[in-house]
């Protein structure tokens, strides 16, 4: 599962390989680190540090979201060419392996934490805990394919760089509004609202 944020100008902003690698690492490390710090330390000082790390991860993700690697991971398939589709397939295969590994480890840990009374292992209990886990899984599923691409795509050569410089001066084709997507989101929100009203005690 992934998505791509198109810029209003229709251009794909140029990001260096190093910055893409740093941003993807920041998302993957800062978010769980921030959540763990908030969980372990009850004092306001470390709590603010944890919150700052989570915020940093979110900012890094939004910096990554309109990049060329996220375009390969999240753009509509019909907008990608042959090689890009192949790269996406490989990136998704890698993400699937990592996510299923993490899920299996997490479920095994939860099973032990809930079953073995001799060990006092932490297990998520409150809404805040599950909320943090939910957003973490979502962030990982969005970022893992782009992280794989950022770390494995070969560096562009001088001719590619020159071509990118020339393309930057040319007018870009502006993206069309995807009304069906906005309609789907709006109707989903309306259905969710109605269900919440009906199901609330």
């Amino acid at each position: 599962m992934s998505f791509y944020i198109r810029m209003p100008s229709g251009r794909v902003p140029r990001r260096s390989r190093i910055s893409l690698r740093l941003a993807s690492l920041t998302v993957l490390i800062a978010y769980p680190a921030g959540c763990l710090i908030q969980l372990i330390f009850d004092h306001p000082g470390p709590g603010v540090t944890g919150l700052a790390l989570v915020l940093l991860a979110v900012l890094a993700f939004f910096w990554l979201a309109p990049s060329q690697v996220q375009r390969i991971a999240g753009e509509q398939v019909c907008q990608l060419d042959d090689v890009e589709r192949d790269l996406r397939r490989r990136a998704y295969a890698f993400s699937y392996q990592v996510l299923t590994g993490l899920m299996a480890a997490g479920i095994f840990y939860l099973a032990v934490a809930n079953d073995d009374t001799r060990l006092t292992l932490w297990a998520p209990q409150t809404y805040a805990h599950w909320n943090a886990i939910f957003w973490g899984v979502l962030l990982y599923s969005f970022t893992l394919p782009s992280a794989w691409l950022a770390w494995t795509l070969p560096a562009p050569d001088a001719e590619d760089e020159a071509e990118a410089d020339r393309s930057a001066d040319e007018p870009a084709e502006k993206p069309r509004a995807r009304w069906w997507l906005w309609g789907l989101l709006a109707s989903g929100a309306a259905v969710g609202f109605v269900l919440a009203r009906v199901l609330a005690p």
Partner: peptide
């Protein structure tokens, strides 16, 4: 295709 794809093909990356 994307112009970068031509570069990848020429260099034998893909």
């Amino acid at each position: 295709v994307n112009y970068q794809t031509v570069g990848y093909l020429e260099r034998g990356d893909y």
